[in-house]
Design a protein around this nucleic acid. Structure first.
Lengths: 133, 133
DNA sequence: TGTGGAGCCTGCAGCAACTATAGGGTCAAG
DNA sequence: CTTGACCCTATAGTTGCTGCAGGCTCCACA
């Protein structure tokens, strides 16, 4: 493939994405279908590379496919206010915060059990209570 | 249904779980099958309620069904030898620590992104910028 | 010129953990 | 004794991939 166009494998290496995943993103309409070579190979341009990087980075940060779709749509409307973007990011951050707090509580309980074991006594297991209402 | 026993819908409301999900947990052996009324309705007790709460919170925290199964075994068998409890609890604590570290890193990134958003237009939106390559 | 192997193609099956639907039975209030 | 909310089973669909089968394309090396 020429220097102008990237094969799917090049795109995969350039974004640490599996080839199958790229085809999946195309199928669900998240990544636009690229042109094809004479031999029916997908031929990607630099736009595809940056769009896929955006998608992968967002997925890594825990955004869902639908959230990413919304973010990509918003990213295209350059003269609109970015409040909607901010709202998606904030909602996601708040959820992450909640999870951290819960995990810390669970960690404390597990720690207590381990400490109990060390002192030779049989730990009274409260892990269920820790995460119960 | 009497005050002693909860119908599946009550349990669902009490744990913010869908009715179908409760039946699914029963099918895979995560939640013990309750007794039945004369009309073949499931009749749950308080033990089911706290066990299901635990399952839901744990799922929310990113534990797999199989991990929760192990965690519940740990909670159920408090008269096991100390070393077994200790080993399982340690493995789970390490995993919880990893999850907390991952989420904190993620939160930091989200936070930086959000802090940079000055409610301007999308063209100058820091969030989109951060997610772009 | 041809051949080997890496890489590409499509389509479909499967994974975890649900979620929804169809087609029916139960229960309590009015 | 009907009505509507609730329950039952069984089965199929969802999300976000991942892997496979069976076949085509490309290019370097002999």
């Amino acid at each position: 493939m020429s220097a102008q166009h990237l094969a799917i494998g090049d795109l995969a290496r350039g974004t640490a994405t599996q080839v199958g995943t790229i085809r999946y993103y195309e199928r669900i309409g998240l990544l636009p279908a690229p042109g094809r070579t004479a031999g029916n190979y997908r031929a990607y341009g630099p736009g595809h590379l940056s769009r896929l990087s955006f998608i992968r980075r967002s997925r890594d940060l825990g955004f869902s496919i639908e959230q990413i779709r919304a973010l990509l749509d918003l990213a295209d409307q350059r003269d609109r206010p970015c409040e909607a973007v901010d709202a998606i990011a904030r909602a996601h951050r708040d959820e992450v915060d909640r999870k951290i707090a819960d995990l810390r509580a669970l960690r404390g309980e597990l720690d207590g059990m381990i400490a109990g074991c060390h002192s030779g006594s049989i730990a009274e297991c409260r892990i269920i209570e820790t995460l119960s209402p």
